[in-house]
Write a protein that binds this DNA or RNA. Structure first.
Lengths: 234, 234
DNA sequence: TCAAAAGTGTTTTGCTTACACCCATGC
DNA sequence: GCATGGGTGTAAGCAAAACACTTTTGA
């Protein structure tokens, strides 16, 4: 994004925010950006070009932040509380050390209705890239998120509920898991998303019955215990 | 809405559209407005005031069109195709016989991202009221909708899917059925929403097991056959 | 008395849950 | 050898689906 295009090339008062989920080391993670100067963590987001579909804008933001394309992405809710950006009364966006015009700053400080998306990505393939507003981009464990900008914590909560819901209908492990994975790893993913323990035997039965993964005939060596079988998504 | 407030009191480029479902005479119906001059039927919709929540805007539109308040209402999707209002290339909105300023007309002809809501109302309690753009407001059978404005047919389809989905989790018959109703009537509602036949005995068992309705000890006289028992929601 | 809709229970099926033992590996 | 996690099958429970006969009513 170009500082000069703010308030000109984009639709007014509409933004998108992406909750990008990844899975690593047995925990669910979310990609966050640390905003300059105000030192607040926030969801990756952006604006919609005047002739762009919101879905395309979300894909654009996603690929800019992760350097990935063709990511699993789903709109889940639009947040329109007129005071959603006023949760932090003492936060002054105009402190952003970016060369914005006065018009651009007024534009950004205005009200935004934001369309929420969630995405699932392969943690190992992501190269986090900060945007114009931020100095850092990195993964955070879902259980240990910092204080977030505006209503972003609320958006994350809603995204998790939507993800949980979607997982019931659609096995989306293939977007998050690495090429080769073990069943206990996939089970852990389900457990952290659904927020409950699952029986090992029942889980195997269910997943294998879906015919979406196949055994590779290899095992993962190097663990401290019995080597688990490796699988891949079809 | 005041013609002079168009383009001033509302957020630019954002609208809401409501798919209002009612149930009458064994069929699911949708409330539509007939736009003046262009003679095209459309969903009831509106704009969001500069300091208003989208949910509140939807409630406002709903009560303006139905003269009901406190209606079951749920946001289901936001439609953002940049060409969604260009489906009818030959449609000239500026023909609307309403005294709009040139600025207002340009504003209306611009691109809109619209937030879709669906609502459930008691057919018998609704007094359909046209809005500023329309000359008529009435119910249409879902199976026999006319050609609709813009992408409104697509919005209706998506609303029906969302409604079907919601019905699985939440028995929302009480918003649509009259005070007194029979089980076959309620069953028919489920059948038209879910799009499939349901076994009578299984349906009774399930609904009565939910403890959300109770028999009134009366029957509906006057039918050509055996009088069905009347029930009410708790 | 007949046609059409409404009331009523039981069986079967499929999916989910519960549950226990042996196996492989690194320390 | 032992602690730890991984692999494996069966029985029980529960909710949904299948299924047929009798009753009431107006014509």
């Amino acid at each position: 994004m170009n500082p000069n295009s703010i308030g000109k090339d984009y639709l007014d008062h509409i933004s998108i925010d992406c909750v990008i989920f990844g899975f690593h080391n047995k925990s669910l993670r979310v990609l966050l950006l640390k905003w300059k100067t105000i030192n607040r963590w926030a969801l990756p987001g952006g604006f919609i070009k005047k002739n762009e579909h919101a879905d395309a804008a979300a894909q654009r933001v996603l690929s800019e932040r992760t350097e990935l394309s063709n990511i699993f992405l789903r709109q889940f809710h639009t947040f329109s509380d007129p005071d959603r950006n006023k949760a932090d009364g003492n936060l002054d966006i105009s402190l952003l050390p970016v060369r914005f015009s006065k018009e651009a700053i007024d534009w950004i400080k205005g009200r935004f209705v934001t369309i929420g998306y969630f995405a699932l990505v392969d943690f190992n393939k992501v190269k986090p890239v900060p945007d114009l507003f931020s100095e850092e981009c990195r993964w955070w464990e879902l259980e240990q998120l910092p204080v977030l900008l505006y209503d972003h914590h609320h958006i994350v909560d809603a995204a998790l509920i939507a993800l949980r819901d979607a997982l019931q209908y659609q096995p989306m492990g293939k977007y998050v898991m690495p090429k080769k994975f073990t069943l206990p790893e996939l089970q852990k993913l389900y457990e952290v998303i659904l927020g409950k323990k699952i029986d090992r035997r029942n889980f195997r039965k269910k997943i294998l019955g879906l015919n979406i993964i196949h055994p590779l005939g290899e095992t993962r060596k190097g663990g401290a215990h019995r080597s688990p079988d490796l699988y891949s998504f079809n």
